[in-house]
């Protein structure tokens, strides 16, 4: 078998457009490909992927594999796995980057096992070891308390990269690239799970992941009622409300509010954390926040080691006064 070559990015589509996570991955992949002296390719899976192909090239791809089949119209993990498995066997990439999104976090390990290779899961950084010309991946372990640097021993070397850690390149619409059609053969019987129903539970208003300001509450709030104060503050600041896992596990707010390692990854300009101790598992979801503000009555709480601004005291006194002052400042 010919030697594996090239950096392949698994693209994701959002409403027919190239998803922002895929733009990020192309930036990460571009650097790897240049350091390896190899080509950067992207796989786009769907019933038709024309719209996103040129976008992918403008964001850095040298070549697009348009992996198409009518059954790929709706995302189904088994069918996507089968399509990707044949693409990998056919094109023999050296490196494969997958975004650790809701779909990627299931697909990446299953693809790695199917191909019989290793996977670096949930990476914060991917680079090329200059001596060995192999992929090096930094990933948080032990709830983010430690970082492991790992390498994959076989090819493709697969890394699942955490969303929002790489910035997309400036798109260049004049960039040239090749679009290669890669039709796959799939049977509907390959889909081993069926989606019976989809239910949305999110609060109305600004999405947590997109919000410029996020106000989160934790265990120290003591119940669901105080979240009304956080909602009010978020409204005044044009933001969204999040929560720690403790608040979600207590049933105070829906699961969709959870920020952290097993919840959402957010990158707001301002992250206001109310009565959250700041365990590394929570910080894993908000380390990309520009400014963290901590309000906690425990002056020893870990969060004061991570925050830019801290107020030690009772949130019941602080939040209403803070909200009123912000309202005044915003209106003035």
């Amino acid at each position: 078998m010919a030697e594996a070559t090239g950096v392949l990015v698994l693209g994701e589509l959002a409403g027919g457009e190239l998803a922002s996570v895929s733009q990020e991955l192309l930036a990460a992949g571009r650097k790897l490909a240049d350091d390896l002296g190899e080509e950067l390719t992207i796989a786009l899976l769907g019933a038709s992927v024309e719209g996103a192909s040129q976008q992918a090239i403008s964001y850095g791809a040298d070549r697009v594999y348009a992996v198409t089949h009518p059954l790929l119209e709706e995302y189904q993990v088994d069918l996507n796995l089968a399509a990707l498995e044949s693409l990998c066997q056919e094109t023999n990439p050296n490196v494969l980057l997958i975004a650790r999104t809701e779909s990627g976090r299931e697909l990446a390990p299953r693809l790695a096992f199917r191909l019989g290779v290793g996977l670096a899961q949930d990476c914060l950084e991917v680079s090329v070891d200059p001596a060995a010309k192999r992929l090096l991946a930094n990933r948080p372990v032990y709830g983010g308390n430690a970082i492991a640097v790992i390498s994959c021993d076989l090819t493709p070397q697969i890394a699942a990269v955490r969303p929002k850690v790489y910035e997309p390149l400036e798109p260049d619409p004049s960039r040239q690239g090749q679009v290669v059609s890669f039709p796959v053969e799939l049977e509907s019987s390959q889909a081993r799970t069926r989606i019976v129903e989809r239910v949305e539970e999110t609060s109305t208003g600004i999405k947590l992941e997109d919000a410029r300001v996020v106000v989160s509450g934790g265990r120290g709030l003591g119940g669901p009622e105080p979240f009304a104060h956080l909602e009010e503050l978020a409204k005044v600041m044009g933001g969204a409300v999040g929560a720690s896992r403790a608040a979600v596990d207590s049933g105070w707010v829906p699961v969709a509010y959870q920020v952290g390692l097993t919840g959402k990854t957010i990158t707001p300009e301002i992250y206001i954390m109310v009565a959250i101790s700041g365990a590394s598992q929570h910080m894993a979801g908000c380390s990309g926040a520009k400014v963290i503000v901590a309000i906690n009555k425990d002056s020893e709480a870990n969060i004061f080691r991570e925050a830019r601004y801290g107020v030690v005291g009772d949130w019941e006194q602080i939040i209403p006064a803070f909200t009123a002052a912000v309202r005044e400042l915003v209106q003035s």
Binding site: G116, P140, G144, N145, I147, F304, R305, G310
Partner: peptide
């Protein structure tokens, strides 16, 4: 399938300005 090259505790934290 994978090799652990190194393991370390990340530098975190910054100086918090108390209000």
């Amino acid at each position: 399938r994978v090799t652990l090259r190194s393991l370390f505790v990340p530098e975190t934290g910054q100086d918090c300005e108390y209000i």
